[in-house]
Simulated assay, not measured.
Amino acid sequence: MFPKHVRTHHRLHHGHKPEELDFLIRRESVSGGATSSQMQREFGRLNEEEKENLLKGVGLRPGIPSGAGLLLKANLALSWNKLRHLRRWLRNWNVSLDSESKDREKAKGMTSPLVAEQLPFTFTVKGPDGKLATEVRLASCVCLEDISSTVLQRLDLLEREGKLTWHGVIPSDEIWLKIGGDKGGGSTKAVFELCNVAHPNSIENTIVWNIFQAPDRRHNIETAYKINLSQINALCGTMWK
């Protein structure tokens, strides 16, 4: 005789074969009605290969929370191409990420408006006589439309997350902003970093505000930064709170 609480099994296991139903009834009896906990214990006793085969057998794909792909991309400084390779690799282990199209759609609502244009930059080339010469040609330049609003939004986010700090050095009524740049891979990038965080030089705190496909010459820098220079100067007198 099974305990009376088992008599509800016909509502829980409708559609099973007789031998399956008998097994499920016994599991419910052994567990005292706590079938989920019993199945967890049974699953926990399996080795890793058995667990993997079981999950594949029932077609279960462990999912990573929606939006996690963008976090991976940002925290690991991955390009879209590298994230694509990572997504394929995870799929081999039965782990799924959001599709790239979904990630790109989410990213649109998380990025600041951009300005993209072709500008006249200077390049060093070899002339007909074999001597080095300067050539002017159009090349791509992309920058933030408004650095000021991006910095203020960033400050609001850091404040909500409780990540702002003054390090015991920065005056309590000041926000310090570091402007820097880097040349590499055929492009020149300009970044800013807020100093009022625990790790100012971390990748997570480094925001690219301008990038152009040309050498980091004075003329090229002045040409590329013409949109943002006045905004950066205006930041010096901006009141945040």
Results as ranks from 00 to 15, higher is better:
Ser66Met: 09
Ser149Trp: 07
Arg104Met: 06
Gly67Asn: 02
Ala77Cys: 10
Gln38Trp: 13
Ser101Ile: 14
Thr150Lys: 04
Gly69Ile: 00
Leu83Cys: 02
Leu119Val: 03
Leu158Pro: 01
Leu70Phe: 03
Trp80Gln: 07
Ser36Asn: 11
Cys143Ala: 09
Thr124Cys: 12
Cys195Ile: 00
Leu78Arg: 01
Asp173Trp: 02
Leu21Ser: 06
Ser79Cys: 04
Pro128Gln: 11
His10Leu: 09
Gly63Cys: 14
Gly44Ser: 13
Thr124Arg: 15
Leu60Val: 15
Ile227Leu: 13
Ser36Val: 14
Lys131Leu: 08
His5Gly: 15
Leu70Tyr: 03
Arg91Trp: 11
Phe192Val: 01
Pro200Ser: 03
Lys106Arg: 13
Pro128Ile: 06
Asn205Cys: 01
Leu60Phe: 15
Glu100Phe: 08
Asn75Gly: 10
Val125Thr: 05
Gly185Trp: 04
Glu193Pro: 01
Ile232Glu: 02
Arg45His: 12
Ser96Ile: 15
Leu132Asp: 14
Glu52Phe: 13
Gly63Leu: 15
Ile175Val: 15
Arg91Phe: 11
Asp182Met: 06
Ala107Gln: 07
Ile147Phe: 00
Leu83Pro: 00
Asn92Leu: 12
Lys73Pro: 02
Gly109Ser: 13
Ile211Tyr: 00
Gly32Phe: 03
Gly59Pro: 05
Ser66Gly: 09
Ile207Val: 07
Ala74Arg: 15
Glu145Tyr: 07
Gly162Trp: 04
Gly130Glu: 07
Gly69Val: 00
Phe192Gln: 00
Phe121Val: 04
Arg88Asn: 14
Val197Met: 02
Glu145Leu: 13
Arg11Thr: 14
Cys143His: 08
Ala77Ile: 14
Gly57Arg: 10
Cys141Asn: 06
Gly162Pro: 02
Thr111Lys: 07
Lys102Val: 13
Lys178Thr: 12
Leu138Glu: 11
Asp216Tyr: 03
Leu144Glu: 03
Thr150Phe: 00
Arg154Ser: 08
Ile211Asn: 01
Gly127Thr: 05
Ser172Asn: 12
Ser230Pro: 02
Ala133Lys: 13
Leu119Met: 09
Leu24Ile: 07
Ile179Met: 04
Ser29Gln: 09
Leu155Asp: 02
Ala234Cys: 11
Ser79Arg: 01
His14Val: 09
Gly185Leu: 06
Ser172Ile: 08
Asn47Asp: 14
Ala34Leu: 10
Arg87Pro: 04
Leu119Gln: 04
Leu164Ala: 10
Leu194Ile: 02
Ser99Val: 03
Gln118His: 08
Gln40Gly: 10
Ser31Glu: 02
Pro18Asp: 09
Lys106His: 12
Pro3Gln: 05
Ala34Asp: 12
Gly32Val: 01
Trp166Tyr: 08
Val115Asn: 10
Ala77Glu: 10
Val136His: 06
Asp216Cys: 06
Ala198Gln: 12
Asp103Gly: 04
Glu19Trp: 04
Ser172His: 10
Ser172Leu: 15
Lys183Ile: 02
Leu132Tyr: 15
Lys189Leu: 05
Ile211Thr: 01
Val191Met: 08
Asp22Pro: 02
Leu86Ala: 08
Ala68Gln: 12
Glu19His: 12
